[in-house]
Design a protein around this nucleic acid. Structure first.
Length: 552
DNA sequence: TTAGAGTTGATTTT
DNA sequence: AAAATCAACTCTAA
């Protein structure tokens, strides 16, 4: 049995290779757990992306003589049942380091052992085997600084090569265990990949959801389109990308040459149905490859090796460098995965060794206003509307809203914000999401809490006219640019003329940013001081006391 | 112990 | 557009 969870691909799939090795037949399986397929746990955009990825995976397996069987239920129950029904002797899946997955897999492994089934779980979701990296960390504790991580990563050797392609997969002969497997299919959704609607979700209005389709085919095409944009890659610096930039068509190197009037005339006279532009993908300022990495539609190692070829061979080393560059971003992903792997209670403040203890609130009203895009700050609310509608927002938009919720203005617990992102984002990834929330709330990794993103100034820097705000908050579409970032300062006659009176058509600002941010800075300074005193105390009391605090 | 660096601040000055 | 200033954080290496 080949059990797909993440790693929804046929390229660079060592579990697939292992499953086929000398096997008389292989059955690929995905288990949809009803516990997760609920709007309160997984937003419609991410679930749709998953279903699209499964459909694409099924097609790729069919092209190899096999197909994907989608079962329903708790994997810890379903997988052992199917192993027994099919009298499998081998179970292969991609290793997953998340605590939830570790617990699930431990339970499945135990059941497999009882059935005499051998289990293989090769690493392919990260560039390196995280446990090999962890073994290089002093005391097994990963560094919380990127530069230190780079040293450890470079010390473990080059990124392993990708797994070979598998041209054909022998299917299971129908018969044995069919009844039991039929029982594990959902009676409502039947066989195959169910639709969003069958899983009890409302349809996503056309043109409203995440702007790209899920799946390995789409992911690899987008990866290669991105890698063909050599100038873009050479100059890529993540902090300098624009969070308000809309998704626009992008063209790779092959089609980068501007069409001559002659070419254009030729195309139109020939009556070609599609132009290069129409075939091109749309993309934001960043690559938007994160959802494909999250689900493993695109292998990080394939990404790495193909990127390296462009950087080393084509660009000959003339390109931006980590941490800001594109390969730097793959290394950031690895960094967070490693810290997550080596940190107990990584997704919580309590008992988390690396997380600053800060007296955040769980203010329900503030959290709801933030989550429902009614803070009264158009820049913040537009970002949150984009999140809700598309399941995506630009990296710096995420910074802006995360800072606003936590250390910048509302002083609400980062765990509350992380839960919203974890539900809504198409690319929500446990290690990256929690790590980034700790970063933005100055709980770990980043400590300059006096550098606060302005809920007015930050967006304005990129989009003076407020085009982005007008798109996601149509009630403000006629507000003059002068007031679009702070409509409460517009004279009442201007508000009336724009058809948007603050307090009626759009909320009053939830806080006075100047006052709120100052208070937040003071509270964090106090928490940092308490930490410093605590640390000083344990140093005086020698290393023993510090050890006692570990693993709480 | 201390200097220097740290992917992504805002505002004013040059 | 780039640099200085604001106030001043932590981590790492020397």
């Amino acid at each position: 049995m080949l059990w797909f969870r993440k790693g929804l691909r046929v390229h660079d799939n060592p579990a697939l290779v292992k499953a086929c090795e000398g096997a008389s037949a292989v059955q690929p399986v995905f288990v949809l757990d009803p516990w997760f397929t609920k709007p309160e746990r997984v937003g419609a955009n991410r679930l749709r992306f998953l279903l699209e990825s499964l459909t694409d995976l099924d097609a790729s397996l069919r092209a190899r003589g096999s197909s994907l069987l989608v079962l329903h239920g708790d994997p810890a129950r379903v997988i052992p049942a199917a192993l027994e029904a099919w009298r499998c002797d081998r179970l292969c899946y991609e290793f997953d380091t998340e605590p939830y997955a570790q617990k699930r897999d431990a339970s499945v492994n135990e059941a497999a052992r009882a059935l005499g089934v051998e289990v293989h779980a090769p690493v392919a979701h990260t560039l390196w085997d995280l446990d090999r990296l962890l073994a290089k960390c002093p005391r097994g504790e990963p560094p919380t600084a990127y530069a230190s991580f780079l040293k450890i990563a470079h010390g473990v050797g080059p990124v392993p090569p990708v797994a070979p392609d598998v041209p054909s997969i022998t299917p299971l002969s129908v018969g044995d265990g069919k009844d039991l497997v039929d029982a594990l299919r959902d009676v409502v959704t039947g066989s195959g990949v169910p639709s969003l609607e069958l899983l009890g979700y409302e349809s996503i209005p056309v043109g409203e959801g995440f702007p790209a389709r899920g799946g390995e085919t789409e992911g690899l095409a987008r990866l290669r389109e991105t890698l063909a944009r050599t100038t873009y890659i050479a100059e890529f610096k993540k902090p300098q990308t624009n969070p308000t930039e809309p998704w626009t068509p992008v063209l790779g190197k092959k089609s980068a040459k501007p069409a001559t009037p002659f070419d254009a005339a030729k195309t139109s006279s020939a009556g070609a149905a599609t132009s290069l532009t129409a075939e091109a993908f749309t993309a934001p300022a960043t690559t938007a490859l994160s959802p494909y990495l999250k689900f493993g539609c695109v292998s990080p190692r394939t990404f790495w090796h193909e990127l390296r070829a462009v950087l080393d061979v084509e660009l000959k080393g003339k390109h931006s460098k980590p941490p800001e560059s594109l390969e730097g971003q793959l290394l950031w992903r690895e960094f967070y995965y490693l810290v997550a792997r080596g940190t107990p209670n990584y997704d919580r403040m309590a008992g988390n060794r690396i997380c600053r203890q800060i007296p955040w609130t769980w203010d329900e009203e503030r959290l709801a206003a933030w989550e429902e895009a009614r803070t009264g700050f158009p820049w913040i609310d537009a970002c949150m509307m984009q999140l809700k509608r598309e399941g995506w927002m630009h990296h710096l938009a995420r910074h802006a809203v995360a800072c606003f919720l936590t250390r910048g203005d509302l002083f609400v617990h980062w765990e509350a914000g992380a839960a919203v992102f974890d539900r809504e984002l198409v690319d929500a990834d446990w290690a990256l999401n929690n790590g980034n929330w700790m970063w933005l709330s100055c709980s770990c990794f980043f400590y300059q809490y006096f550098r606060v993103y302005g809920p007015v100034s930050f967006g304005k820097k990129y989009d003076k006219e407020g085009v982005y705000i007008r798109k996601y908050l149509p009630q403000l579409k006629d507000m003059p640019a002068k007031y679009i970032y702070e409509p409460w300062t517009a004279p009442i006659e201007v508000q009336k003329k724009a058809g948007c009176v603050v307090g009626l058509d759009y909320p009053e600002p939830i806080v006075d940013h100047a006052v709120a941010s100052k208070e937040c800075i003071e509270k964090i300074a106090a928490a940092y001081n308490a930490h410093k005193n605590g640390t000083a105390g344990s140093i005086v009391a020698a290393g023993k006391k510090r050890k006692a605090g570990d693993g709480v």
